[in-house]
Amino acid sequence: MYEPNKWVPATEDAPLWRDPPRQFAPVLAALRSLEERTRQAGGLVLRLGQLYGHGTIYGRNGSFVRQVQAGKMPIIGSGDGTFSFTHVQDAAAAITAALDSHVRGVLNVVDDEPAPVPEWLPILAELLDAPPPKHVPAALGRLAVGGWGVAFMTQLRGADNTLARRTLDWAPRYSSWRQGFAAELAHATHS
Rank of each mutant, 00 (worst) to 15 (best):
M1T: 07
M1H: 11
W7M: 08
W7V: 06
T11M: 03
E12M: 07
P15C: 04
R18A: 13
P20G: 07
P20N: 04
A25I: 01
A25F: 01
A29C: 01
L31C: 03
S33T: 11
L34K: 06
E35R: 10
R39V: 07
A41G: 10
G42V: 10
G43N: 06
L44K: 10
L44E: 02
V45E: 07
G49N: 07
L51P: 11
H54N: 04
R60V: 14
S63I: 06
F64A: 12
F64Q: 08
R66C: 00
A70V: 04
P74L: 06
G79P: 10
S84T: 13
F85D: 13
F85I: 12
F85A: 09
T86R: 02
A91M: 04
A91P: 04
A93F: 01
A93M: 06
A94I: 02
A94D: 01
A97F: 01
L99S: 02
S101G: 09
V103Q: 05
V103M: 03
G105N: 08
L107E: 05
N108I: 13
D112I: 02
P118E: 05
W120K: 03
W120G: 07
P122V: 09
L124N: 07
L124I: 13
E126S: 12
P133I: 12
P137E: 15
R142K: 15
L143W: 12
G147H: 11
V150G: 08
F152S: 10
T154M: 05
Q155T: 05
L156A: 14
L156I: 00
R157I: 14
R157K: 08
D160K: 14
L168C: 05
A171G: 09
A171E: 15
P172R: 11
R173S: 10
Y174F: 15
Y174M: 07
S175V: 11
A183F: 03
E184R: 00
A186W: 11
H190C: 01
